[in-house]
């Protein structure tokens, strides 16, 4: 089990990095990577929400949508209660509500953390990496016959590692972009174009991790 979890971790952080290989969460990646401090704040917020979202969406899928003995309203609906087609709709609503809840809970319990992450939390609702990790969890850890063994722990670890991978890419990028501020770049390429070209080089470097697992 520990070995499998380690493979999931390395896979999500390095081999299939969420930003550089899977292209998830590009809007904040280009938008918030101008300075290192903001990048770190955004990264922390993403790790936090991704881990919680993985746990919550797993429970929604397993207990409410997937047909089978675990389904809470199978008896009510008949036909085994297959609601998996509601996956997209329910996940995005749950994630939107979750981000609101996390924001309120942080404000009450830890004002210091709220000040650090607060402005990034609303942005996270439309961050496709969060919804993406929830879908990938379903694709990876649920077979055609239902949940695979240890799928809850694996989903949790996968969500956490995906957040770490996102943060790693974001921090690398912002460190490079701080240097680029003073570099002599042709005018047409300043801003987004050079950021994409930098991302291309980073992505090429991460391609070197292929075959690690």
């Amino acid at each position: 089990m520990i070995g499998e979890l380690a493979i999931i971790f390395i896979g999500a952080v390095l081999v299939n990095n969420f930003v550089l290989t899977r292209f998830l969460g590009l809007c904040p990646y280009i938008g918030v990577s101008r300075d290192l401090k903001a990048a770190a704040g955004m990264g922390l917020a993403v790790i936090f929400v991704m881990t919680i979202a993985s746990a919550v969406t797993w429970m929604i899928y397993y207990y409410l949508l997937l047909p089978g003995p675990a389904n809470l309203w199978a008896g009510l609906l008949g036909r085994g209660g297959d609601l998996t087609f509601l996956r997209t709709l329910s996940f995005i609503l749950v994630i939107a509500a979750l981000v609101q809840l996390v924001e309120m809970a942080l404000l009450k319990t830890s004002p210091a953390l709220y000040r650090a992450l607060g402005i990034y939390l609303p942005l996270i609702t439309t961050n496709c990496a969060i919804l993406g990790v929830a879908f990938l969890n379903i694709d990876y850890f649920f077979g055609s016959a239902g949940a695979l063994e240890g799928s809850f722990t694996k989903s949790l670890v996968h969500g956490f590692s995906a957040g770490i991978g996102f943060t790693l890419a974001l921090i690398l990028m912002s460190a490079i972009r701080e240097r680029l501020e003073t570099a002599d770049i042709p005018e047409a390429f300043r801003g987004a174009p050079i950021a994409f070209l930098t991302a291309a080089l980073l992505s090429m470097a991460f391609l070197g991790f292929t075959g690690l697992i």
């Binding site: 550089l20 290989t21 292209f23 042709p186 047409a188 390429f189 987004a192 174009p193 050079i194 950021a195 994409f196 070209l197 991302a199 291309a200 080089l201 992505s203 090429m204 391609l207």
Partner: peptide
Amino acid sequence: LPPGAFLTIGLLLGLFRL
């Protein structure tokens, strides 16, 4: 491969701006 996507959009964006 993935780097090619970043490369293509970066170059096209720069060319359009030019």
